[in-house]
């Protein structure tokens, strides 16, 4: 089933009198259960595309369909509900809430989804085990390493089993071992729980594990190929 469909999506930024097209008529579809990497050089439009798919930003022109619904004209509140119910985000710079502990960061995303507090705590503890940092449950972000923070960010993104996880350069700030460990966790979630992942990356480790690779340059998707034999 098609989860996301972009039809002739344009995104133009204005800085004073200067206009800049970050996306120039992108056509792209994402099926449920995919583990896809969006690759391309810096400034090619990867992050913009992810932001538009996730409802964090709006297309200047074109249509964005999510689960078949045109979200282009949705209000800020309706888009926030879509993010809440369907999408998990993983950012390059982790983006954890600084005043909350590791466990609370995960709980927050569940409580926003109206989970009962006890259930949210139970699920947060399960996820802390899954990302192998249960001992950091009560630490705040500033007490954790980059890799540990990113594990929490992954746990937070998948906490309520979203339809789609958008990961923007998730391994960029991590060392090789940590990056690999995280990718393994995400692969497992994709394989075992059917969570759809779309990465923006230029990390070869991510590209190596992706089942599909879309290449974007100058705001246009140039190549899109399914990798037959990916490495597990």
């Amino acid at each position: 089933m098609t989860l996301v469909e972009l039809q002739q999506v344009w995104k133009t930024y204005k800085t004073g009198k200067i206009e800049y097209d970050a996306l120039r008529g992108v056509d792209f579809t994402l099926q449920e259960g995919e583990f896809t990497a969006l690759v391309g050089p810096s400034g090619s439009g990867k992050t913009t595309m992810l932001n538009i798919i996730g409802g964090l930003d709006r297309a200047t022109k074109g249509t964005v369909l999510f689960e078949g619904e045109d979200v282009t004209k949705w209000s800020a509140t309706r888009l926030s509900v879509m993010r809440l119910e369907k999408i998990g985000f993983i950012f390059q710079s982790y983006n954890l809430v600084p005043v909350l502990s590791a466990r609370e960061n995960i709980e927050l995303s569940l409580i926003l989804r109206h989970w009962h507090a006890d259930e949210a705590r139970k699920r947060a503890d399960e996820l802390l085990e899954a990302v192998e940092i249960a001992d950091m449950a009560n630490k705040r972000p500033d007490e954790m390493s980059g890799g540990e923070q990113q594990r929490i960010a992954v746990a937070r993104a998948i906490a309520d089993r979203p339809a789609l996880v958008l990961a923007d350069e998730p391994t960029a700030n991590l060392d090789t071992a940590t990056g690999n460990a995280l990718l393994t966790i995400m692969e497992k979630l994709n394989r075992d729980e059917g969570v759809t992942f779309l990465f923006s990356t230029h990390d070869p480790r991510v590209v190596e594990r992706a089942k599909r690779i879309a290449t974007i340059e100058d705001g246009i998707v140039l190549k899109d190929k399914v990798v037959a034999h990916h490495k597990l």
């Binding site: 996730g54 509140t77 926030s80 509900v81 993010r83 809440l84 119910e85 983006n95 809430v97 989804r113």
Partner: peptide, 16 residues
């Protein structure tokens, strides 16, 4: 501001 962005990315509605 960035933190509010994080909360919004999690799906926190403007009202919250």
């Amino acid at each position: 501001i960035r933190e509010f962005g994080i909360l919004m990315s999690l799906g926190t509605p403007p009202s919250a």
